[in-house]
Nucleic acid binder design. Structure first.
Lengths: 112, 112
DNA sequence: CTGAATCCCATGCGATACTG
DNA sequence: CAGTATCGCATGGGATTCAG
C-alpha cells in the first residue's frame, strides 16, 4: 500500500500518529518529559504495565530515536531513560492533546 | 481497571488519545476540517477505505459528537457529513500533529 | 448512492515464568 | 534491578456479500 498517494495533505499527520500509537508509548513519553527516570521508577508511574510491555515500548521508542538509554552500572543494574532532542519535539503534541482532552471532558459534562 | 489512578497527570492525554485512535478517524476528521463532504466524496479521499470501515468510523465519530450527519434526500440517497463544534476543537491537535510529523521527516533525513 | 451483515485474520497486548 | 522467552487471547481491520 502506497500511503503517500492516499492521504496527500494528511500524510505527515498519519505517519506521525501511527508512530505514537500503542497503549503505553504516550504515557512513557509524558513521564519522561518531566525528567529522566529509571526503569522501575517509570514502571511505578505506569501502573498496570508489565515488564514485557515496558521493555518493548522503550525499545521501540529508542529505535525510533525518541528516547535514549543509559546504563550507569551493571551490578546492581542501574539504567536511566530520557527524551532525546527528537523526543522533546513531541512535547507540544502532548500539551495540545492534553488541552483537548480537557475540552472533551467539559463537553461530556455539558451533555449530561 | 481504574485508569484514573494510573495516569494521574497524563489521564486526559490518554483518554483523548484513545478516543481518536483507529486507523481512519484522524484522516476523516482531517478532510472534514477542510469542508463538509458527502459519503462518497469522503471515500474517494480516503483511498483504500472500504464501506464498512468508513461507515463504522463515521458512526463512532457521530456517537461521540465529533461529526454530524445530514440526510438531504432519500432517493437518490444524499448524505453530508461535517464537523460539530466539538469536532472542530480537534483541529489544533491535527495541526500540531502535522507539524510534528514534518519535524520527524526532517530528523529521518538527517540520519540517513 | 449510502450503507449493513457476516466472517476471517493479523496484530497488539499481556500473563506467566525465568535470568544475569 | 532490569530485563527476556514463550504462549495465547482479544481486538481492530478488512474482504466479501447483500440491500434500500
Amino acid at each position: 500500500m502506497n500511503t503517500d498517494e492516499w492521504y496527500d495533505g494528511s500524510c505527515d499527520l498519519i505517519n506521525s500518529f501511527n508512530f505514537i500509537s500503542g497503549k503505553w508509548r504516550l504515557p512513557i513519553l509524558w513521564y519522561l518529559s518531566h525528567g529522566n527516570l529509571r526503569y522501575n521508577e517509570l514502571r511505578r508511574h505506569l501502573c498496570g504495565i508489565t515488564n514485557i510491555m515496558l521493555t518493548r515500548s522503550l525499545q521501540d521508542l529508542e529505535i525510533h530515536g525518541m528516547v535514549w538509554r543509559k546504563q550507569l552500572s551493571n551490578i546492581p543494574p542501574h539504567v536511566v531513560y530520557g527524551l532525546t532532542d527528537q523526543g522533546k519535539n513531541i512535547i507540544p503534541v502532548l500539551e495540545v492533546l492534553e488541552a483537548w482532552g480537557e475540552t472533551q471532558v467539559n463537553f461530556e459534562k455539558r451533555n449530561d
